[in-house]
Design a protein around this nucleic acid. Structure first.
Length: 501
RNA sequence: UCCUCGGUAGCUCAAUGGUAGAGCAUGCGGCUGUUAACCGCAGGGUUGUAGGUUCGAGUCCUACCCGGGGAGCCA
C-alpha cells in the first residue's frame, strides 16, 4: 500500500510531477528495450513507459514478467502526450508487481456475450462496462439531486410484500415463515401512503418481475425510481417527468464525455432531448400508428435495410477477393470486419423479416389494446426526442388509475417512450381518489379486498389528488449509452436463465 | 408457450457432401515510441448430444440439450 498513490484521472493536472499509481495491467506492448504498460486503477487508464536504461533490474524484470490483470505499483513522472488517453503518460522510474495474475480469460479481443456474461465479475474491469456503469452512477446521483433539490424525501418501499398489485403471475413467490409472500414488483401503493405523510417522496430500489421475457429490454431484477406527489394532477406529473429526463441526459452529457466516447455513443440525439416533449393522447397515437406516414416510414426503413444488405454483401465479396494476398495484419483487420459484417447482416435480416409483422400490427391496431413493442418503436420514429403518451383506455392500465373526467373510458395514465427504439422508460399517472370506485375496481380485477384495506384508508382519511410514476433505471441507462442490450446496464444482471455470477 | 437464428481449437470465426483452417490467446525468437503494436516459429480438435441417409457428413434428415433475438407481458 502506498498512501501517496494518486488516481489516474487526476494525472492531467500533475504534468511534470513525480507520482505513484496503483492499479492493474490492462494490456502491454513491447519492443527490445521498451515496455508500454497500460495501467487501470478504476478512475481511468494510463500508459506507463518503462525504458530499460532508465530503471533498475528489478523494475525491468517486473515489466517483462507482468501478465494481463496483474496488480502493480508504478512510480514515475507525468509527461504530456496528446496521443494518449487523457493526454498524459507516465515515464516510469520504478515498477513493482503486487500480485502476478494467472492467464486472464478475457483477452483484449472480441468475445461473445455468453462467454463474457459467465465472467461478468471479471468483465467489469473492461472498458465498456467501466463506461456504462459510470454513466449509471451519474444517473443515480442525478436522480437524487433532482428530487432532493425539489424538496422530495427519499423513502423506501418494502421489498417483501403480502399481495400482488396486478395479479400474481409476474411475481416471484417466496415462503415467508410458512406464509406465501412475494418480491415487490412496484413500490407504488406504499409510495402513496408515504406521499400522504411527507407530501412529495420518491422511492428507489430493486424491483422484481417473473415475466418470461427474453428480450434486450427485460431483466428479472431491476432498479426502479418512483416519485409520488400529493396535490399533483396528470399535467403536473408529465411536466415533472419531462424536467426529470432532460436533467438526467444533460448531466450525463456534461459529466460523462469520456464514457460516452468509449461507448461510441453519438451524442447528437442526446443533445436534442429538450423541453417540450411531444405529448400525444392515446387516441392521437393510435391515429398516427395507423396513418400513411407510419406506413411510409416503414417502407423507407425496409428500403434502407435492403440497400445496406447489398452494400454489406458487396463488401464481403471484396474482402474475399483481397484476402488471399493480404498481409497478416491486414487479414486480421479483414477478419474483424467480416465478423462485424455478419453481425450487421443478421441484424438487418431480422429487422427486415419483422417489418411486415410490424406493419400489420400497426395497420390493424384496434382502439382499446395496449401498444406492443414494435408499435412503440414506430411511434417514436416520428419524433427526434422522447414522447409522452397519455389517457389510455382504462382496461389496459392498473386498477388504481383515476378515470378521465372528460371521458370515462379513459384512465389518466401516461408513458414516456425513449427514442431510438428503447421503448417505455417511464410509466405512471394520476391516482384514483374515490373510495367506492377503488373498491369496485379491486372487485372487478378479482383482487382480495382485505389485502387493500390499508390502501383504502388513504382515501378514508384526507384523500387528495395525487400522482406519480416509475422510471426504469437500466432502461434509461441503456438508452443514454445506446447499449445493444439492457443487461449491460447492471453490474450483475439477472435475466431469464441467468442467476450467476 | 410459440416463431426465428445459431452451437467447429482457450476466444472470435472460416470451410460446393470429398485431407477440419485463420486470427487472437499461450510458449520460444526478433524489433528503441507502441496504441486490439508488428514480424517469424511451435503446440493446440471426439465439429453440442443421440440416431439416420450416403462409398463418404462440420455440411443433408429426425429428436433432444444449450444459447442469441423476437412475440405475449412489462420499467
Amino acid at each position: 500500500m502506498d498512501r501517496s498513490a494518486v488516481p489516474v484521472d487526476t494525472l492531467r493536472a500533475r504534468i511534470g510531477a513525480a507520482v505513484v499509481v496503483q492499479g492493474w495491467l490492462q494490456n502491454k506492448r513491447a519492443s527490445k528495450d521498451l515496455y508500454f504498460l497500460e495501467v487501470r486503477d478504476g478512475s481511468g487508464l494510463v500508459q506507463c513507459v518503462v525504458s530499460r536504461h532508465e530503471v533498475d533490474d528489478a523494475s525491468w524484470s517486473a515489466a517483462v514478467r507482468i501478465t494481463q490483470e496483474s496488480a502493480l505499483t508504478v512510480r514515475g513522472t507525468v509527461v504530456a502526450n496528446a496521443r494518449q488517453i487523457g493526454g498524459v503518460e507516465i515515464q516510469v522510474s520504478s515498477a513493482e508487481i503486487f500480485s502476478l495474475a494467472d492467464e486472464y480469460p478475457i483477452s483484449p479481443k472480441a468475445h461473445g456475450v455468453e462467454f463474457l456474461m459467465d465472467r461478468r465479475h471479471l468483465w467489469l474491469r473492461s472498458r465498456r462496462p467501466w463506461a456504462t456503469l459510470r454513466v449509471r452512477n451519474r444517473v443515480i446521483m442525478s436522480i437524487h439531486e433532482f428530487y432532493q433539490e425539489r424538496g422530495f424525501v427519499q423513502m423506501d418501499a418494502p421489498i417483501l410484500t403480502s399481495s400482488a398489485v396486478e395479479g400474481t403471475s409476474t411475481l416471484f413467490g417466496i415462503d415467508y415463515f410458512s406464509t406465501p409472500a412475494y418480491l415487490t414488483q412496484s413500490g407504488q401503493l406504499h409510495g402513496e401512503a408515504m406521499a400522504m405523510a411527507f407530501g412529495k417522496i420518491y422511492t428507489f430500489g430493486p424491483t422484481f418481475r417473473a415475466e418470461k421475457s427474453k428480450t434486450r429490454r427485460h431483466l428479472t431484477e431491476f432498479w426502479m425510481m418512483e416519485p409520488e406527489m400529493a396535490f399533483y394532477d396528470l399535467d403536473m406529473n408529465m411536466d415533472l417527468a419531462e424536467d426529470f429526463i432532460v436533467r438526467l441526459v444533460s448531466d450525463v452529457l456534461r459529466d460523462c464525455q469520456e464514457e460516452l466516447k468509449v461507448l461510441g455513443r453519438d451524442t447528437a440525439p442526446l443533445s436534442r432531448v429538450q423541453k417540450p416533449f411531444p405529448r400525444l393522447t392515446y387516441e392521437e397515437a393510435v391515429d398516427l400508428l395507423k396513418s400513411d406516414a407510419t406506413r411510409d416510414l416503414l417502407h423507407q426503413r425496409a428500403k434502407g435495410l435492403r440497400e445496406k444488405l447489398t452494400a454489406l454483401s458487396n463488401e464481403r465479396m471484396q474482402i474475399r477477393q483481397q484476402y488471399g494476398q493480404a498481409k497478416q495484419w491486414k487479414r486480421r483487420r479483414m477478419d474483424a470486419r467480416r465478423i462485424e459484417i455478419n453481425r450487421q447482416q443478421s441484424a438487418a435480416e431480422e429487422e427486415l423479416r419483422n417489418i411486415p409483422g410490424w406493419e400489420r400490427s400497426a395497420r390493424e391496431f384496434e382502439w382499446g389494446s395496449d401498444f406492443g413493442g414494435s408499435d412503440e418503436t414506430l411511434l417514436t420514429w416520428h419524433f427526434d426526442r422522447p414522447i409522452i403518451i397519455h389517457r389510455y383506455p382504462a382496461p389496459v392500465k392498473a386498477f388504481y388509475m383515476k378515470r378521465d373526467p372528460e371521458d370515462d373510458r379513459l384512465a389518466l395514465g401516461m408513458d414516456v417512450l425513449a427514442p431510438e427504439g428503447y421503448g417505455e422508460i417511464i410509466g405512471g399517472g394520476e391516482r384514483a381518489t374515490d373510495l367506492a370506485f377503488l373498491q369496485r375496481q379491486v372487485d372487478d380485477h378479482n383482487l382480495p379486498r382485505e389485502a387493500f384495506e390499508w390502501y383504502f384508508d388513504l382515501r378514508r382519511y384526507g384523500s387528495v389528488p395525487h400522482a406519480g410514476f416509475g422510471l426504469g433505471l437500466e432502461r434509461t441507462v441503456a438508452w443514454i449509452c445506446c447499449l445493444e442490450h439492457i443487461r449491460e446496464a447492471a453490474p450483475f444482471p439477472r435475466t431469464l436463465g441467468r442467476l450467476s455470477p
